[in-house]
Each structure stands twice: as structure tokens, then as C-alpha cells.
Design a binder for these strands. Structure first.
Lengths: 230, 230
DNA sequence: ACATTTGATTGATATTTATCAATTCAAAGC
DNA sequence: GCTTTGAATTGATAAATATCAATCAAATGT
């Protein structure tokens, strides 16, 4: 593991408040590895042995059933994934693969479980992290049930623009992955984006410009209870 | 609060392992109340002040947006709801209403947050509870994305039969609520049930009989990663 | 027991979304 | 620079799902 990784990880909400000694112990048992693009990190159904942290690159979490596949989310640096499975000592519910060359830190699940029994602050951080993740999935499920695909696309674009802090931004993710995350086919996303042209959306390849936010807002009707805070 | 409530609550995974003194303190600050059918207990967006426990009756959690409404889940005795919002001290993501006359215990969120800082066992239980809830929603979202409505209905029926321990059981919930939970219209559910007749499903009002499980299985292809353990 | 209300079902239709096939486009490798 | 590959788009069609309206059934209250 690189020395520069430690402060970044330490700065995460999950590890921010724990005792230094315990943090060091967790990091002692952890190891880092680089993976090429398109590599399967985790296969759903496998036993959850490690908490994963993306320090570089990008990881797609997706689910499979009966030959079908659906993206659930994309994890970007610096972010953790599959905490819940580690805690429950249960099989992973989602598979994970790198979307680009990525560096991943892996912390043995048993270490985690041991440490939050000793360190209240870490326990509280874990509670907060899980509650946050839970709420994120609930919002996602709400979006799937309450909005149609065009509305989901509009909301997604507004969210990304807000994150970028600009009306113009790069998607940074393949459209077919975005489509799957939003619960639709690539063809449907393509058409949805085209039809949103009349609502102030301009798309050229990966580049998106929301040149008339006022027009797009009523389509998406963004709501913190669906799209998250901020 | 009735004296008979305490042992039931104490027996929940969330409260099972904590110190007796802390449990008593939580219960001291809690209060119980009975509500008639159809009453709004919680409105989404309101600040989360209380963890709710259903000791009698049935509560529907649902979400609203732009005049549309979608059921997320139904909570039955003895079960808790909206733990995550309490922990995050954030607005409720879901509304809640009674489906029948219900007795609810309410524990101030601030008490919860205070206690798990003092009681490691309660902290660990909270972590486990949240991880379990998180995984349940992930499975739900997976079902919405990977299965079509007919498959979701089939899987739901098989799950209910497994819970009942019998091939014949009562739904116990209005079909329109079930439909909304499964992400479909009542009409669509009605037709799906009808079409499942040829796959070993017999429905008469609230009564369901799966008289040919072997025929239904390939439709639903139940999977613990989608339908939960057990 | 009857009337009233509400939910469930059914049929007809519209809309949304997926699928399949063909083409265009863009990036990566040689 | 050219070729190759995979992604994105587009068009045509099919399938799934929603909507609307009418009827039927069941539960509730009087």
C-alpha cells in the first residue's frame, strides 16, 4: 500500500473518527492491489471476506439473474463497497468489476468486525455509513417505482451537473452502464436523451450541457427524498 | 405500554443483546399508542424523531412523488421501521400508514443515538440490523430490475408460501398494496395471477394455493440473492 | 337483511419499454 | 494512417405495462 493512500482513507467518514491505533491495525491487515479494466473483483454469491476501498479508478456494482444483468451503482475514489455483506458475514448480493484500471484496498471482514467491538467511534461510524447506504438504495428504489425512464434520465443529469458544479460536464461512464443503472436499455437511454433536447439538454458523445435548466427542472422535478441531499 | 410488550421487544435482534439497564432506559422514554386503520403515522420528509415498533397490526411504508405513490414494504409484528432515518437524524424517506388497527411503540431517536454510544452490544446489534435492512432493499431493487412483473409475482407467492410453511395461505394484504410493492398496477397483478393459473397457482380472493410448485419454480427461479435467505 | 362503499376483475386501448437489425461513430491497436 | 472492435444511434417491430371504463364481488355499516 502506498503511504499516500493512508491519509485519504483515514479521511473517509467510515474511518475518520476511530482511534489511530485501531486504524493502524486495520491497515496492517489490509493490502492493496491494482487491477486492469474489465476485471471481475467480486462475484455475487461468493462469501464476503473483504471490505473493498477504491482509491483509484472506478468500479461497477451489478447484479445478475437468469442470464440478465443490471448495474446497481458505480463506486468512485475514494469510496468503499460491500460493507453490509462483510458485516453480516454473508454472500455478496452484487458482483463488482472494474470500469477502468483501478487500485483497490482490501480489509479483511473479520478485522472490521473485531475492531468495531473495541472502538465505539468506529462502531458509530459504521452505523452512520450503513444508514447512509441504506437510504441511498431506498432512494434508488423509489426512483425506479415512481419515475418513468425519461424522468430518471433527467434527474440523473441534473444530479451529475450539481456534482460537477457546472451545467457542462463529462459523463465519465459508458452510456450502456448508465442506462442499466437507471433501469433501462441503451436504446431507450439514447432516445430519452434525444427527446430531452427540447428540454434544454445537449449531448455530444460523453459531453453533456444543460443549457436550459429551467426547462429541464419540471421534467425531473428533483427531490432530495429521491435524488439525495445536496 | 403493556407489560407483555417488553419481552417481545426485548426478543428482537435489535434489542436482544444490550444491557438490561440500557434496555430499561430506552423503554422508559418510549411510549405506546394504538391507531385506527388507515392512519398516517409518518409523512415522508418530516424530521425523524422516533424509532417505531409495530407490536400489533400492520404498517405500510410507501413513497410519494408528483402525485404518484408506491408501496415499499409492509411491516408486521414484531418489527421496527425507519431506523436509518433516526440514526442519521434526517427526514423520513418514506411515509407510513396503518393497514389495520395497530399498536406502535415509539422510541425517541435521540435516546437511541445516546445508548449505542454507551453500549457496544447495542451498537453491534444496530450495525447488524442496518446491514440486514440494507441487503433487503438491495434485493428488492434487484428484483425490480432483473425480473418482469409476472416473475416478481411468482417469486412473491413462493416466498409467502415458504413463510407460511404451506402451499396454501392467505395473502393478508390487499392486492393493490401487493401490486404496488411489486412495482405494478392492480390490473396488471390481477392478470398476472390469472396467467399463473397454468403454472400451478390458484387464487380465490385472499386465499392462495400453489398446487404445483414444480411448475411455478421455473417461472420465479427463486434465488436467495433476490428473495432472501430461508 | 339491505344498502353502500371499496376493492377486484375484465375488456379495450394507449403508452411505454424492449428487442432485433442495421448503420454510424469513435476509440484502440497494429 | 488504416483497420478493427465495440459502443452508440437509428429504425422497425414486438412485447410489456399502464390507463380508462365498466362490471363484479366482497366487505362494512346501518
Amino acid at each position: 500500500m502506498r503511504p499516500s493512500d493512508l491519509p485519504e482513507i483515514r479521511h473517509l467518514p467510515l474511518f475518520r473518527d476511530m482511534l489511530q491505533a485501531n486504524f493502524e491495525q486495520l491497515m496492517q491487515g489490509a493490502y492493496a492491489q491494482s487491477f486492469p479494466e474489465g476485471l471481475m473483483l467480486i462475484r455475487q454469491g461468493d462469501p464476503a471476506d473483504f471490505l473493498h476501498i477504491v482509491v483509484e479508478g472506478m468500479v461497477e456494482l451489478f447484479a445478475e439473474w437468469k442470464g440478465r444483468s443490471a448495474s446497481m451503482t458505480v463506486v468512485q475514489p475514494v469510496g468503499t463497497f460491500i460493507l453490509a455483506a462483510c458485516i453480516r458475514d454473508a454472500p455478496y448480493l452484487m458482483s463488482a468489476r472494474t470500469l477502468e484500471r483501478s487500485r483497490i484496498i482490501m480489509i479483511p471482514a473479520s478485522d472490521l468486525r473485531a475492531v468495531f467491538r473495541r472502538d465505539v467511534e468506529f462502531a458509530v461510524s459504521t452505523i452512520n455509513e450503513l444508514a447512509t447506504c441504506y437510504r441511498a438504495v431506498v432512494r434508488h428504489a423509489k426512483g425506479l417505482k415512481l419515475r418513468d425512464s425519461r424522468e430518471r434520465v433527467a434527474a440523473y443529469l441534473l444530479k451529475r451537473a450539481a456534482q460537477a458544479g457546472q451545467a457542462e460536464f463529462d459523463l465519465g461512464i459508458e452510456k450502456r452502464v448508465i442506462a442499466s443503472m437507471l433501469g433501462m436499455t441503451p436504446e431507450n437511454l439514447s432516445r430519452a436523451l434525444k427527446s430531452l433536447a427540447e428540454d434544454g439538454v445537449r449531448v455530444q458523445g460523453q459531453r453533456v450541457t444543460l443549457w436550459d435548466r429551467a426547462r429541464l427542472l419540471p421534467v425531473a422535478q428533483p427531490d432530495p427524498l429521491l435524488d439525495g441531499p445536496g
